[in-house]
Structure formats: C-alpha cells, structure tokens
Design a protein around this nucleic acid. Structure first.
Lengths: 197, 197
DNA sequence: CCTTTACTTGACACGGTGTCAATTTACACG
DNA sequence: CGTGTAAATTGACACCGTGTCAAGTAAAGG
C-alpha cells in the first residue's frame, strides 16, 4: 500500500507540529522547525498540507482524536440536569485548554493576519460555542438560568469566559495556577449564568 | 525653532497611525501605509520611531493624551465607596476600549511575535490592572468583596473580564452591541466580585 | 524491468521591516 | 545674503519566513 507510507509521514508531521508547538507555544514555530523535528524536508510538509494554516488546523483536529475529545465529553453530554451539564462542560474544557494550548496559540496568532486561519479558528471555536449553547439550554430547561439572560446570551457569555485568551491572561499574565483558574472561572460562570440562590 | 517642525511631523505621523489603525483594525497596517497617509516618506517614520513597535506604543500613549484619560478617570478616582468606584472604573474602561481598539489590536497582534511589543503591551495593561486593584481594594475596604476573593485575585479577575480580547470576542465574534457588552460584562463583574446581596 | 509514488534538493519570488548612503529642502543666524 | 545645520527624501539593499517550481533520487509493485 503506497498510501501507508503517505499516511505515516503525515502523522509524523502532525505529531512533530504538535510537539514543537507544545514545547514553545510562545515563539512562532516555523515550517522548517517542524520539518527538522519530523526528520523530513521542509517541502514534504507542503506535499501534505497546502499552507501553514492548514497544517495547524490539521494538527488541532489530530489532537481532538489523540486526546479523545469524544470520550471526555461524555460526562457533559449525559448530565441529567442543567447545573451538572454546565459543571461537566466547564471541567472538560478548562482541562482541555492547557493540553491544546500550544496549537491553539499558533492558530490564534495566525488568525490575526491570515483569513484562512481566522476561518479555521472560528470553526474550531464554533464547536466550543455549541457546547456552551447546550449547557445554557439545559440550564434554561431547568429554569435555572438567570432572568436577564437569554439562552443565546448566556451561551455567548460562557463562551467568552472560557476563551483560550482568557486562560492565557489568567495563567500567564496573572500567574494563576490551573486550579485557581478553574476555581475562579467556574465560580464566575455559575454566578453569572445561574439564578441567584 | 528647529524642533518645532520635528514635533509637528512626529504628531502628524502619530495621528496618521491612529487614523489608519482605527480605519482597519483587522488588517495589518504597514509602515508604508502610515507614511503615505502622513504625506511623508517611509523612512521619515524611522527617523522618529526606531521600530514599528515603538511607533505603535507611542501612538497608544498619544491617544491617552488626545482622549484625555486623566479627566475620564476622575469619576473612578473620586468615588466615595467601593461599588461606585467599581462601576465608574468599568464605565470608563468599557467606554475607552472601542476608541483605542485599532491601536490596541495592532499592539496585541504584534506582541505575539515581538518581545518588545509584548513588553510595551504588558506595560499598558499594567496601568489598567492598577485600576482594577484600586477598585478591588475599595470594595475590600467597604467589606463588599466576596469572601472567597483576595484583593489581588479580585483585581486579576476584573482585569481579565475587562480585557480587550474579551471585548473583541463579545462584539466581533458574538455580535453583541456595545450596550449589551457593557451590560453583561459589568453584571458579570459585579456578581463575581461582590458579596452576594 | 519499468512505472508510479513519495520524498529530496536547491533555487527563487514575494511581502514587509529595518538599514544605509547620498542627496535635497528649508530655515536660522551671522 | 550666503552659509551651515537639521530634517526629510530617494533608492538600494539585507533579512526572514512562506510558498512555488523543476529536476533528481529511491523504493515499492505490477
């Protein structure tokens, strides 16, 4: 099978991209860096991915598989009430962010000056937004949603609170630990979304 | 006075940078764009500002003067209780963001791949953080701060809530109006920071 | 054995920043 | 009125990273 080798190089590249970005999420990782790490020529990258943006997006999808997003989302999807669903979703996503941060950061940076990357990022974040809508809807169904929030606004608010930049600000700029971040953000989310007790 | 002409070109450049960035905060404004708009050669820019980052930072400081930050901060500084101070500060800053967004965006983008710009941005945001600390302290003095927040954590939380990226997410990605943004963010801030009523 | 497919090598164009040197403009002052 | 000095112009160039292209190599598979 000729496509076997094809596949495997592709995977090597994706893994290398991941590792490189994970290692230095701050510094901008070049195509040549990834190639070197993959033990492959820079041009081989372009054989598999048209542009850097495509490689980054592919890497982030690759992560979803490797890190098994679907399994991780089960608690949230199977929650039996709104508050549980909200908590489960927040737990999932806040735990996921640090693992994808390297790749996410690269995409975030790129989206600021590359329309294709912007679309890709919007697409990825759209998935998170859907999760937020589901949680907000579940709260609404329970009558637990604060009175001055529509489902849509609640979802948006949650989404904004859970943004990767937000995590970055809190942990990198403010120096919060991951625990502090999770605690304060989920607290803020609950206080903002739920009807006052 | 020879430095008069010097000054005035400098100001023309700053104003042009401002206008250019205001016009297209999304697209990356080039040095040549600014030069053209200022009716000056590209090299003239480098005569006044060593690098693009320096020009951007100077522009943001220029805005603070032109938009009269000090006056705008008076209500916050003279508030007689914590809640008033918090509200005044939020009103100031949320109103200020849209006005500086173009320049801020350029700096934010640049900070992701330029250490000098990162420092400049951190410096500018440090000023905002100080405002957050002052507000949090005022709340604490009133005994109005939520029990599970230290002054420092409260300030950080407020700062994160008020980040420019946050505003960008809400208004650009979610399509909130400025009014909606102000309403929901200040609501979230109050609910998160204050002792439950 | 010969074709096809995956990959390599090395060269190059492009866009944007920053640098440099030579030149021109203008205005202040003796 | 000229002259010296500071400010600005012009055009060329180096650098970096992305993306393109053409020619060559290596190996699997019929």
């Amino acid at each position: 099978m000729s496509s076997n080798k094809n596949r495997s190089t592709r995977d090597v590249i994706l893994k290398s991209a991941w590792k490189a970005l994970e290692e230095t999420p701050d510094k901008s990782v070049r195509m040549s860096d990834i190639a070197k790490r993959a033990g492959v020529s820079r041009q081989a990258l372009y054989l598999h991915f048209p542009t850097r943006g495509d490689l980054l997006t592919a890497t982030s999808r690759y992560l979803d598989v490797v890190l098994d997003v679907d399994t991780r989302l089960i608690p949230s999807r199977t929650a039996t009430n709104g508050l549980d669903r909200l908590n489960a979703f927040i737990t999932f996503w806040t735990g996921y962010i640090p693992e994808i941060y390297g790749v996410a950061k690269a995409l975030m940076v790129m989206k600021d000056h590359d329309d294709a990357a912007a679309t890709a990022w919007a697409d990825r974040m759209g998935a998170v937004h859907e999760g937020c809508v589901a949680a907000a809807q579940a709260l609404s169904d329970d009558g637990a949603l604060a009175d001055d929030l529509s489902v849509e606004k609640a979802a948006d608010l949650l989404w904004v609170l859970l943004s990767v930049r937000h995590w970055e600000d809190a942990t990198k700029s403010c120096g919060w630990s991951q625990e502090e971040y999770v605690y304060h953000i989920s607290r803020a989310a609950r206080l903002s979304l739920l009807k006052p007790a």
